[in-house]
Nucleic acid binder design. Structure first.
Lengths: 194, 194
DNA sequence: ACAAAAACCGACTGATCATTCGGTTGGGAC
DNA sequence: GTCCCAACCGAATGATCAGTCGGTTTTTGT
């Protein structure tokens, strides 16, 4: 199991940082110390290796989010959404490679032809959107949030947060300095007046 | 000039839809009808071809935005920002290939080592952000917009709009159905109460 | 009309790639 | 002790790639 895990770990880094096509199996072999044949013993081919990585990305992101959601306590729905936004930004920093992989184009391209890949991606995005929506619906009930379409509002909110996270990824602007403005915008979108 | 333009046009499509690495010069040669040597007569190498494309992407996007900004008339700053958001979404649809190229990871990777590439990207994003900021500043003056940090608000707004546009690109969710919610969120962020 | 330059051609090259295969090793079951 | 299977190895393979080069055609300036 040791070599297999080493391959998975190194491949996650390489696929994220360099991309699928520009990661070579020989480089992966050199880095992990595993022979070329060993990689193909554990994984049918390069695409299969990628799918295995995407699967663990899905599992780890969703488990992190759900874990956070269980332990965190919120005063109301608005508070929950703010907590989720903050946690998402934190997660994008601590699981940099995994998010980098999701911010690449290859997974979505592969999803066009590979249903398994598509299901992983949908699971990730639906899971994340669900948490946003949950907070919004709670906020509607306790009057801390005002909106008529919880799902759509969740999507706009998510697009905003993920867009800011991507600014970081691209090294164009620093997301940290946007944090205050992002939270303020979030509160305004949700309609709380203070 | 004919062959050169044909190469540029076809390469823009291929780089956008398939990516830099997964676009081969032989495929480009086959599609355009230009011999392999002809491509390298017009462009030093594959990277040089890419930079030429990115340059025209920058020029065409910025000229479209500035053109729109000149002809459009706004009642106030809030109106202008709304117009810019709508126009940006429209542009992302009508210049699909160009935006797809910008939504890929390769340009930003190349920008890490190639200053020319980085300057093109910065020019595009700064140009777009400037237009958002312009509307916000106008809105502050005419009291249609309330915010203390125009540039940061512009960035958050841009991240949101671009994030929604990317949902489309990834074929995960349909941006059209989010338009109303996006505009509503935009108005709320800018602080206008109606 | 003609010479020089620019556009164009396609076969060739060496490097790199994902994947295969025949064989070796090591540890658990009986 | 020996059978078995999974983990592991690394040389070999055929395909594909970006880029080169020597030569031909077309355009342009005068």
């Amino acid at each position: 199991m040791s070599k297999r895990n080493a391959i998975l770990a190194a491949a996650t880094r390489l696929f994220s940082r360099n991309g699928f096509r520009e990661t070579s199996m020989s480089e992966l072999s050199r880095i992990t110390g595993a022979a070329g044949g060993t990689i193909f013993h554990h994984f049918k081919n390069k695409e299969d290796l990628f799918l295995n990585i995407l699967k663990t990305v899905q599992e780890s992101i969703l488990s992190e989010v759900h874990e956070h959601n269980k332990t965190a306590e919120y005063r109301n729905g608005m508070d929950m959404v703010e907590g989720v936004v903050t946690f998402y930004l934190h997660l994008a920093g601590s699981m940099e490679d995994q998010f980098l992989l999701l911010h690449r184009h290859y997974p979505y391209q592969m999803a066009g032809t590979n249903p398994v890949c598509r299901s992983y991606l949908e699971s990730i995005y639906n899971g994340l959107l669900d948490v946003f929506e949950q907070g919004i619906r709670m906020g509607i009930k306790d009057k801390s949030v005002i909106t008529t379409s919880p799902r759509n509002t969740a999507m706009v909110l998510f697009a905003m947060v993920d867009g800011v996270a991507r600014f970081n990824t691209y090294n164009l602007y620093h997301a940290g300095s946007l944090y205050q403005d992002l939270m303020a915008s979030c509160r305004k979108i949700l309609g709380n007046e203070n």
